[in-house]
């Protein structure tokens, strides 16, 4: 039978980064139940992130946050046609193996969960399922890509409803990319050393003028205007964690954020979709967060 079949290659870099390309311009929403997943799909989400608790609740609950119960992941997988992502703890390659066995479409090796390894991230080349990882700067992004990440999201500060860290991290990455593209070839080695990133990937950044993989933003996006702000700054797309299902009217907020992400350059549309959308999630001022409560510091 194998003779007759066309050769099919699975788990290639092209297949892994390819799915991220298809998500561009879209909104990926955190969901904790199949019902929420359906609301997200009907509102126009391009994917959902299956979780046991959204970041704001993880923050409130404290303790160790782990991969979701497989029963939740399976139920959400069965509920929607759009891709399903799920989070594994940083360095916890067995949680990642479990999620791959559950056939999630993307794994987020995420700082929202409590890290399992404070030195090493998962060797993501070992998997057929693609990974997305968080980053606060270009060096961190390129280290994750070197480990096999097929998509990057800048981190922001999850579960706060405050976009300030997401803006900081996106501006940092884009600013560092501009430094690389402006640098002559002989300076790239020194830049690679400064960023703690492989020279080969720094060269790719210079060639392409952007990250070599799709670049979303996450962490604190709570309104349609927040989403449009990130798109205007240059993001490829948006992750919304607590911002949908911690708002007053999740279905309306989800739809409004999807529309604002599409029409990010059209203030009239953003005004229209922002009207009567209900209360956004309550926000947290960064200075009220203890250093130990900052999730963005996790990952290295």
């Amino acid at each position: 039978m194998a003779q007759k079949m066309n050769q099919r290659e699975q788990g290639t870099a092209g297949v892994k980064t390819g799915l991220a390309e298809m998500l561009k311009g879209g909104v990926i929403m955190d969901v904790t139940t199949p019902e929420q997943a359906v609301i997200a799909e009907q509102a126009g989400a391009v994917a959902v992130m299956a979780l046991e608790r959204v970041p704001a609740d993880i923050r409130a609950a404290g303790g160790v946050a782990r991969m979701a119960d497989p029963a939740i992941v399976k139920a959400i997988n069965a509920a929607v046609e759009i891709p399903v992502m799920a989070k594994a703890r940083i360095g916890h390659f067995v949680e990642a193996q479990v999620l791959e066995a559950l056939e999630v479409d993307y794994i987020d090796e995420s700082e929202v969960l409590t890290p399992a390894d404070e030195q090493y991230h998962i060797d993501k080349w070992n998997f057929n399922v693609p990974f997305v990882c968080g980053a606060r700067n270009l060096g961190e992004a390129l280290r994750r890509i070197a480990e096999g990440a097929a998509m990057i999201r800048t981190k922001g500060e999850p579960g706060t409803g405050n976009v300030v860290e997401a803006v900081r991290h996106l501006r940092t990455v884009l600013g560092e990319i501009r430094r690389v593209t402006a640098a002559p070839a002989e300076e790239l080695g020194t830049l690679a050393k400064e960023f703690g990133a492989p020279l080969e990937l720094v060269r790719r950044v210079k060639e392409m003028g952007r990250l070599p993989v799709v670049h979303f933003v996450a962490g604190g996006i709570a309104t349609p205007a927040d989403a449009a702000l990130m798109m205007q700054l240059g993001a490829d797309g948006i992750f919304v964690g607590s911002g949908i299902f911690k708002s007053q009217n999740p279905a309306a907020m989800a739809r409004a954020i999807v529309r604002a992400t599409l029409h990010y350059n059209d203030p009239a549309v953003i005004a229209e979709v922002s009207e009567s959308v209900g209360q956004a999630m309550p926000g947290l001022e960064m200075s009220t967060l203890a250093q130990s409560d900052r999730m963005q510091e996790r990952g290295w």
Binding site: G11, T12, V15, L19, E103, V104, D105
Partner: peptide, 25 residues
């Protein structure tokens, strides 16, 4: 699902003899 996504060579006679290498996602 995504773990079954793949690349393959597809013969397309109107495009000539060499197969087209494409990605299914």
């Amino acid at each position: 699902r995504q773990v079954q996504s793949f690349e393959a060579d597809i013969p397309v006679s109107v495009l000539g003899e060499a197969p087209v290498h494409v990605v299914f996602i």
